[in-house]
Design a protein around this nucleic acid. Structure first.
Lengths: 208, 208
DNA sequence: TGTACATCAGTGAACGCGCGTTCACTGATGTAC
DNA sequence: TGTACATCAGTGAACGCGCGTTCACTGATGTAC
């Protein structure tokens, strides 16, 4: 074996890391293999000894976000202050709608920057996207507070919690997607900060 | 004058209509001028006697959605049944989160299909997008019901209504953007239908 | 009314460019002796 | 320990292709006489 076994895996990880970053900023189709390989410190030809084609990279780069060893800056700050399980979901909500997250385009959640790109893509890419959504919705669903909308006060069924979690994810992702698309910083901030208290209320984590 | 004055305007409108449709389905950069002009029944060369370049088309195609004479199918059904002003906003919410709207990719609100494309674009394109957002948020803000979160019961200030409207738009757009990106029809439907009752509650339009 | 004309919307070949992908090759590596 | 070798990760020129844009030309139109 001319190269150690870890070498190929390490290079592959470096390509995925560059792809994740550049995809987040520019979308799946706007960035070229040349640019990704250049960012990873390689040339284009090497790409095809790691991936069969560009499309295969889409799904892998998206799931690479949730497999990453070191969380991005916008996450780590919030998660460090809220180590307990119940408040972990709340900390994720806080971090997700933070200004740090809005500004960290390259390190942000791929659901924000790749939403419409994924909608136009196929199979494996959509499956990877669904995995990220399921992870976020799952954390929210498992830590739901009382449902202010439910008729009865006692614990609602898990299906309803899942629905509530999806509505919460929709508001978080939607707020961030819109904030990124709006060039008026005041409105972008309003989208972010307005979503927060209503998200907290929706989740039943009383803020007041 | 070799051609009537309306002729140029009519052709221009036809190009914008084709562009709006094809952009909605494929994004701003994935569709070529050839394809747009072909859809409008013309050849590529004619494009440049109507627009200076492709980028100029982006903004015009987006604002063309709110200037359109005949509303898309997913809108007209809901709006016909709710002609009064207070319930107009509610009808728009219903229509926006309807299955008709989810499936009508070409005729849908451009905020859904172009969100991340616009985030990567510049000046005029972002301004057009902001215009669509402002229109939707404005209609919601002007027809807000009582705020369940506010401490006092009496009418809250217009700034707070605007904030609430933005959170509502975020949930509607976010729900639809995610539903389009998810290939599991059950989850896509959950995103759409879960956002609805919480949107109604958020707006203070009691549903129960 | 009929004909010649000026206008300009629309055509389509051509341009330079960057893309995804291929492939013959180079050269750094661990192994065998 | 030192040298020859087999392996294969990485290189970079080349390919066909479609893109946005340009431009000399065509031909349908309303107008002037």
């Amino acid at each position: 074996m001319p190269y150690p076994a870890e070498h190929k895996q390490e290079i592959r990880k470096r390509i995925l890391e560059s792809a994740r970053k550049l995809f987040n900023r520019n979308g799946l189709t706007e960035i070229s293999i040349d640019q990704i390989m250049g960012d990873a410190g390689l040339t284009r030809g090497a790409f095809y000894s790691h991936f069969t084609n560009k499309e295969e990279l889409y799904a892998e780069a998206i799931t690479h976000f949730i497999r990453a060893e070191s969380p991005p800056h916008w996450q780590s700050a919030a998660l460090a202050t809220q180590p307990r399980c119940q408040s972990l979901a709340r900390a994720i909500l806080d971090a997700y709608l933070s200004r740090d997250h809005l500004e960290d385009v390259e390190g942000s959640c791929p659901m924000i920057g790749l939403a419409t790109d994924v909608a136009r893509s196929s199979g494996a890419t959509k499956a990877a996207y669904r995995q990220v959504l399921a992870m976020m919705a799952g954390i929210f669903a498992e830590n739901m507070g009382p449902n202010a909308l439910a008729a009865s006060d006692h614990r609602s069924d898990p299906g309803a919690d899942q629905q509530r979690a999806l509505a919460l994810v929709a508001m978080c992702v939607g707020g961030m997607v819109l904030a990124r698309a709006i060039d008026d910083p005041a409105i972008a901030d309003d989208l972010r900060t307005a979503a927060h208290p209503y998200g907290v209320a929706l989740a039943g984590w009383s803020d007041l």
